[in-house]
Design a protein around this nucleic acid. Structure first.
Length: 263
DNA sequence: ATGGTTGTAACACAA
């Protein structure tokens, strides 16, 4: 005999730029889209002050790894989470809180906040490249590329010209530099597909717009937030959207959610 | 406009 259980899963990622400042936006968005899982980045809060109760009232379990003022990642899930882990392979406990992982419905889910990199000449740029290399090593050490793996978050890298409002302006700079493209390609060579790109080939669709200079109004943005899927999951991906609605609200995050449906 | 805005936290820094 055979048994096939229900395993449709909706997974989203959103850099909320402070979960306390964005609590209402996040709760409204969860109610509207009913994702099973929401990965968040830049929660900007220590674990004791995370608004855990508000999400639990909505039926979500909460796994978080935060720090004072900066960074911070979390996974909300209304399906059970197990084997929660934080940080990258070989990282010390006091490293920036930029990655948290959990296994949900047999899927190993990583919520990632890749370092911004500041400017190409800055040491932070090399640290960004090294961080991506360590993320690849973490995947190699902890998961099988033939299994169900979902790596999502704010990668602070636009993949190609379609993902940058002014490629000629950004080329060679942070977020659109060949070294970043090589680092991201090495990560993806683990066996990860860009869920949104698999289903949408047009340019000009962005996940982030600068708060300054009317970036959103002019659609001067970047696509830097991704859901990457291993082969087995990519085959199950029925939809992938980037929801611009939350960016229109009062006091929005500068990023919008990316949402995938796995059937 | 080597500017512009936002969040946190402390009177700057990161994005």
């Amino acid at each position: 005999m055979r048994y096939y259980g229900p395993h449709q899963v909706k997974v989203a990622t959103w850099n909320v730029n402070s979960i306390r400042a964005r609590l209402n936006h996040a709760c409204e968005w969860l109610g509207r889209h009913q994702p099973d899982v929401l990965c968040m980045q830049e929660t900007k809060v220590v674990d004791d002050d995370f608004p855990t109760d508000e999400f639990m009232r909505l039926g979500y379990g909460v796994a978080m790894a935060g720090q004072l003022a900066y960074n911070g990642v979390a996974i909300l899930s209304r399906l059970p989470m197990k084997d929660i882990g934080i940080g990258l392979a070989g990282q010390s406990l006091d490293a920036d809180k930029r990655v948290i992982a959990a296994t949900i419905s047999g899927i190993r889910v990583f919520s990632c906040y890749v370092p911004n990199g500041k400017s190409v000449a800055s040491p932070a740029f090399q640290e960004k490249l090294a961080w991506l290399e360590q993320l690849r090593q973490t995947l190699d050490a902890t998961v099988d590329p033939k299994s169900d793996v979902l790596v999502c978050g704010d990668f602070n890298i636009a993949t190609d010209e379609r993902d940058v409002f002014a490629p000629e302006l950004f080329r060679g700079k942070t977020h659109f530099h060949p070294d970043e493209h090589r680092a991201l390609a090495k990560l993806r060579a683990f066996g990860l597909k860009d869920a949104f790109r698999e289903l949408h080939s047009e340019g000009g669709l962005y996940s982030w717009w600068d708060y300054r200079a009317g970036g959103f109004r002019k659609n001067e943005g970047l696509r830097i937030d991704y859901v990457f899927l291993s082969e087995s999951l990519s085959a199950r991906c029925a939809s992938a959207i980037m929801d611009r609605e939350p960016r229109r609200l009062d006091k929005p995050s500068d990023h919008i959610p990316v949402l995938v449906e796995l059937t």
